[in-house]
Amino acid sequence: MEEFIVYLREEGNRESTIVTYVGIINGFKKWYEESFGQILDPQRVSALDVQNYKQYLLKVAKNKQQGRLSPKTVNKKIEGLRTYFRFLKHTGVIEVSPVDKVKPQKIQKRSDSVRWLDRNEKNYLVRVMNTPGEWRNKENLMIRNRAIVYFMLHAGLRIGEVVNLEMDDLDLVKQIIYIQDGKGGKFRRVEMNKDLLTALKQWLDIRPLDKGQQVFISQKGPMTAQGIQSMFREIRIKTNIEDLTPHALRHTFCHDLAVKGVSLSLIADLAGHSDLNTTRIYIRSNEEERRKALSMLSAEE
C-alpha cells in the first residue's frame, strides 16, 4: 500500500484523491477477508471475485446518507480497484489484472434528473440579480454577478466556458459570443439577446481595463470556477432555490428554447451538443406545463 501511495503521488494525484483510493482498497480488502475468511492476497483475486464485489456494492452496500450506493459510486470504486491492480501488474506483483474484464455498471440516463427553473423561479432569480440591496448595496458586485448569470441563462454557457471567456471572444458590434467548447475543444457561436447584451455592457463599463483578457474578474484576479460556485451558494440563499446551480441555468436556457418551439437541431447548435439525444431531454414537460395543457381539454366538445 505504501508503494501504491508513492506511485499515486508520482502520477500527480492530489492527497484527497489518494485518500479516496486507499479507502477503496481497504473496503475491498475488508469485504474479501470477511467473504473468504483469509487475508487478501492480490495474486489469488480473480475476475469473478471482483464481479461479486461489484454486485455486493450494487445490492448490499449502503451509503450512510443516501442508502444504497448509486451505479456511479460503484463505478468509481471499481475504477479505483482497476488502478490498484494495474499498479500491481506494472510492478510485477501479478501477471494479469482481475479487474480488466469487469465492465462498468451501465448508468441509466434519466431525463427527470435534469433540473431547470420554472417561470416563477426564473422571474425571482432575475429580480434578485437586479436588486442592489440583495448585494449589500455593492452595485458593482451585482452588475458582475448578473452578467455571469445571464451568460448561463440567456446563452447557455457552462461554468468553465464562462471562466475561460476572454475579451476577444466578444463581438459587441455583431452581438456574438465565440465559445471554445470545453467538451472537445470545438468552437461555437451564440448570438446575444437584448437582456444579455445590456448586462454585459454594464459590466464592461465598470470592469478595470488593466486586468488582462479574462472577461470576469474579482478583486483577487481572474474569476475561477470555485469563485462562481461560491457566488451561486450566495444566490441560493438569496432566492431560496436550494438546487440552483450553473448547470441548472444552462438547462433552463435549453428548455425555454424548446418550449418556444425552437428545433432540436438549433438548440443543439446553440448549446454545443454533439448528440441530439442529449437535447431531446428538454422536450420533457414539467408538471405545471402538463397541467396547463390538460386544462385546455374539455369533457364537452
Rank of each mutant, 00 (worst) to 15 (best):
P71D: 09
Y124L: 13
S113T: 11
T73D: 02
K76M: 14
V128A: 04
N145T: 02
P104R: 08
E95C: 00
P132G: 07
S70K: 15
F85V: 06
F87I: 04
V93K: 12
S97Q: 08
E95R: 13
Q108H: 10
F85I: 08
A147H: 02
R115N: 09
V126T: 07
K106H: 09
I94W: 04
R127G: 04
L81W: 03
K76I: 12
E134T: 03
N137A: 02
T83C: 13
E139I: 10
K106T: 12
K138S: 04
D112W: 12
N123H: 12
M129K: 03
Y124C: 00
S111F: 15
K103H: 08
V149R: 01
D118A: 09
K122L: 12
N75H: 02
H90Q: 15
K138F: 00
N145G: 01
M129C: 14
V96H: 12
I78P: 09
N137S: 11
L88T: 08
S113M: 14
R127L: 09
D118K: 11
D100T: 10
T91Y: 07
K106W: 03
V149N: 01
N130D: 12
P98N: 06
R110K: 14
K89L: 01
K89H: 02
Y124T: 06
L125Y: 07
G92K: 14
R119W: 06
N140M: 04
T83L: 12
I148C: 02
Y84P: 00
R86H: 13
S97L: 06
G80D: 02
I148E: 03
R127D: 11
N75P: 01
K101D: 11
N140G: 06
S113Y: 09
G92Q: 12
N120Q: 13
P71I: 08
V74Q: 04
F85L: 11
D112H: 15
L125D: 04
I94Q: 03
L117S: 02
G92F: 11
M129Y: 06
V102G: 01
Q108G: 07
K109R: 13
K72D: 06
I78F: 10
G92A: 10
P132N: 03
G133S: 13
I107V: 15
L141Y: 05
A147R: 01
F85H: 09
Y150K: 04
R136E: 14
L141W: 04
